[in-house]
Design a binder for these strands. Structure first.
Lengths: 346, 346
DNA sequence: GTATCCATTGCACACGTGTGCAGGAACCAA
DNA sequence: TTGGTTCCTGCACACGTGTGCAATGGATAC
């Protein structure tokens, strides 16, 4: 159907090899012949077949990207960073969302393998370790982003979630809070554990108690989950004066829940998010959060992967490379010193 | 590198043709042989090469999707709908974002053509008509979603933006508003014009005047653009009592701008969005908007395209198919009757 | 005139998979 | 035994592109 180099060869009266060489810019072909061929290709609307080329060269110029969810703005930003970096190098993206579904994860991995993606970026924190190993076993260069099962992966980009969480916790402690709760997302694997552990270590450093009921995990990261979760905090005998949320989406729900309960933020309760998605700047009050450099993370991941694909880097198993990026605390309006009467000294 | 059917053939002592047939489930191969081959394939970790297969079959099982922006939650939802529908049929997605950049659009179209995508869904409203025609000229089945240059496209899914805009405008008029402004997004091509025309026709029907300065267009759809645009409305001698925004993102910025200006919504000014993205439910006040069935739109587009790809539908030029979906008005808290003293009868 | 060299091009094969057709084996009937 | 049928398998070619090597032809040097 589509025109091939053979069609061009027939029309210009040369062999298909000459056409192939001319179009690839091989200087062994005389300038005039090459020019003639290029013109013919142009006129005939020739588009090389990626399938045929990659069959021959064993390179597809396509990178696979696995994210947890397409609807999550956090991953959208990372994708954006990846695409920015990748497109200039002539690579395209094969994107798939696992949606926390093991069956779909298997399918995605299989597709990536069949497509012979040149490499894969896994930025689904909860992605099954087994599937990841499968990709490695088949020799795929892999860069993991915020991935929990990092053991088998030599190359990864991390955001320092422990540090970020500590920054937020310290900020709350410095404001005078003593009863600080953590709202996690059990679907996010290691990420929520890191954030929890940052919170814990900073609380311990300040010799502040962490009652069991101050730690809650919901199954997902959508706003409405935060909204219902906050009610449980409010029902406690000594409710927290500050809530550290796993991410901005949950925090937005928490703000909503508090507002419905008639509690003013930050006067009565402080709330923090995590990630700094676009909308965290537009909540009322604007959300104090940790600005995670999402686009940079995407870009770094892509750069690292492209580096691995350079032909001279023949021994990818040579070294391990882990890059850790730190986020910065972004103080907006949802945090303040606790009310004095809220102070609870028994 | 990777194991091929030839490797399996060698190991099982049959020809590669037999292996090919066995793995494709051709019943002409004896059951025991087929089983033996399948086991060997399993053990050797065989993954068929999509490139080789599509070279032979002229089918890639991949659909291209072109969106305006990956960072826009509106498109994320559409993508979600598409992926939901497509994955069960064994298709994968090749996703690219044009980011309103003509150079990138050219590159994307070229890539889609080289990859021999089985079909393309264009859901970038401002996508260059020239590039679209290029795809058609090369025989790609195309489904357009909310696409402006629909002339050349036989198959498309539309959201009825005119109707949606009329619903919102009528809602405001019914509340008693007479000075209603429209804030558009010049980057969104026909979409903003449709919404503008819905607004216009409803205003005309109610015999309400539309001063020129009540229509503003900003160059994009991000919140901060709405925030600055609203200041211009406020500086007018007779500022509007209601602002109809092109989409939720702009409306969120408008809310922010009004809040900074000390104007209360909806008491002093009503604001409406469009699209009903997740976060429009979490603004203060919650945004009145038009619930566009984004996931359904994505699903319908995918279904239509998959229909076109069915082998029996040999004559895709036979008929034109346009599906128009209507959204529903979602009244939240950002709209109310105008203040009586704001009524301006000269 | 012959040998040599260089520039240019074509031949032939390869990549991994799918498929039409022929061929072989086993079975049955005559 | 022969002929016909059914069932299974292999041969050979095709898809579109890339590339090592040989071949061609013209120019230059002797």
């Amino acid at each position: 159907m589509a025109t091939t180099i053979k069609d061009i060869a027939k029309r210009t009266g040369v062999s298909h090899s000459t056409v192939s060489r001319a179009l690839r810019g091989n200087t062994i072909i005389s300038l005039e012949t090459a020019e003639r061929i290029r013109r013919a290709a142009q006129e005939m609307g020739y588009q090389p077949s990626a399938a045929a080329r990659s069959l021959k060269t064993n390179r597809t110029q396509v990178l696979g990207v696995i994210v947890s969810s397409l609807a999550d703005p956090f991953f959208s930003e990372i994708l954006y960073g990846i695409e920015q970096c990748v497109q200039d190098c002539g690579y395209s993206l094969f994107i798939a969302a696992s949606e926390h579904d093991p069956a779909r994860e298997r399918k995605i991995v299989q597709t990536m393998m069949e497509q012979r993606t040149d490499g894969v970026i896994i930025c689904s924190s909860s992605f099954s370790a087994e599937q990841g190993r499968q990709l490695i076993a088949h020799g795929f260069p892999i860069v993991a982003v915020n991935y929990q099962a990092a053991e088998g992966f030599h190359y990864s980009i991390y955001h320092d979630d422990v540090d970020g969480s500590r920054q937020l916790t310290r900020h709350l402690i410095n404001l005078g809070h003593r009863r600080i709760a953590y709202l996690g997302n059990s679907h996010s694997g290691r990420t929520t554990l890191d954030r929890l552990s940052g919170y814990r270590s900073e609380m311990n450093a300040a010799r502040l108690p962490i009652p069991d009921e101050y730690i809650q995990h919901v199954h997902g990261g959508e706003p409405h989950l935060g909204q219902t979760a906050v009610e449980r905090f409010l029902r406690l005998e000594h409710p927290p004066t500050a809530i550290l949320c796993f991410n901005d989406m949950l925090a937005i729900g928490v703000l909503q829940g508090l507002s419905l309960a008639g509690i003013s933020v930050p006067a009565q309760i402080s709330v923090t998010g995590f990630d700094n998605i676009t909308f965290s700047a537009y909540t009322r009050p604007a959300l104090t959060t940790l600005d995670q450099p999402k686009r940079s993370i995407g870009r770094e991941a892509a750069e690292l992967l492209l580096d691995l694909l350079k032909p001279d880097n023949g021994s990818p198993s040579e070294g391990q490379q882990v890059k850790i990026l730190k986020g910065t605390l972004l103080v907006r309006e949802s945090t303040a010193a606790p009310e004095t009467q809220g102070d609870c000294k028994k």
